[in-house]
Nucleic acid binder design. Structure first.
Lengths: 177, 177
DNA sequence: CAAGTTTATGCAACAAGGTGCACAAAGAAT
DNA sequence: ATTCTTTGTGCACCTTGTTGCATAAACTTG
């Protein structure tokens, strides 16, 4: 139930078309809530039908059939209410941890390669987050409220990737075979 | 694509019926791959049709009676192959981080209560993991391979919950309103 | 032993996410 | 000017996960 709220947030930051949203999801909100373009188009249709967003007909800049959406007051109210709505954290669901557990039963043959591969991926993600932090939040103690929240979210990403790289390094050195 | 492998792992540790699996998922494998009983029954049917598991002879076919399953060699081979099969980590998907992001746009009213609630939940989970560690792995340096892998998985859980409690504590103290 | 509870299996329907493909228009290449 | 590519929207279908309900046997209790 979070995709519509992710879209509302993105549209409030800047009115956009479906494809623009898809691209912006790839680099900002998508870091912690990814979505394909089909998901986004479908959801835009639902949100429009529900009266939470509408298309901006006048603002079409030459591109073919492009449709730009903006958030209506009802949509903003819904998002605002959702921010405070109780919702339990999702239980952890990680295939790699499951694989270690399986390896404890059938043997860890070939697992070390996968661990190394994941380690490299997480190291890259961590580096990317750190670049964003250096670029967008050079002076964390002087942020206004909204930017402090954004920085907090980024910190979560950084700390999570830090955990993974550390844990995977440990795992690699202690995996049999 | 991980549920069948979770079930194969659980069945290799101990042949079980559907309901027994459901209960065991609630406390061990379910910590990092949860599943409802309907998911499990459906998957057991598929695995049996695929010839990876079979019912133990003693069981009767009709409704209401217990059916015990065990893993066949084909199933074990599939699980073993899956352990080494490349599979990228899933992108992070966390509604609470999304809510902070939304709060940066529409205001953080009521968010602090949710953060406090999540903090309590994660603290409880962390305490539970630590109890399991103290009970099952009192001397981590003397473990055999299979137990070292299980301990590694538990460590991941502990470190993840440690991250969340720390991050949420920080978030609570720096959330406006 | 009749009635209710617990244990155990399973179907139907739905919601959410994801893959593949179709189609239409604008711009670039030959 | 015709083909090719890119941009942009969207449908159809499939898998995974969840909710609610149905059914049947076994155990419990007055």
């Amino acid at each position: 139930m979070s995709l519509p709220h992710a879209i509302l947030t993105a549209l409030l930051e800047k009115p956009s078309s479906g494809l623009e949203l898809t691209r912006r999801f790839d680099k900002s909100i998508g870091y912690f809530w990814s979505a394909t373009h089909q998901q986004i188009y479908r959801e835009l249709g639902k949100l429009e039908a529900a009266g939470q967003i509408r298309t901006l007909p006048a603002a079409a800049p030459t591109r073919g059939k492009k449709k730009e959406y903006e958030v209506l007051p009802v949509g903003r109210a819904e998002l605002s209410a959702w921010v405070a709505r109780p919702e339990d954290p999702r239980p952890l669901r990680d295939p790699l941890l499951l694989r270690l557990r399986a390896a404890a039963v059938v043997g860890a043959k070939g697992l070390d390669a996968e661990i190394g591969r994941h380690l490299a991926l997480h190291e890259r993600q961590l580096a990317e987050y750190r670049e964003i932090e250096a670029r967008d939040f050079p002076r964390p103690e002087t942020l206004k409220d909204s930017d402090r929240l954004r920085h907090l979210v980024l910190r979560a990403g950084i700390e999570l990737e830090t955990f993974w790289t550390g844990w995977l390094t440990e795992a690699r050195s202690s995996t049999p075979e």
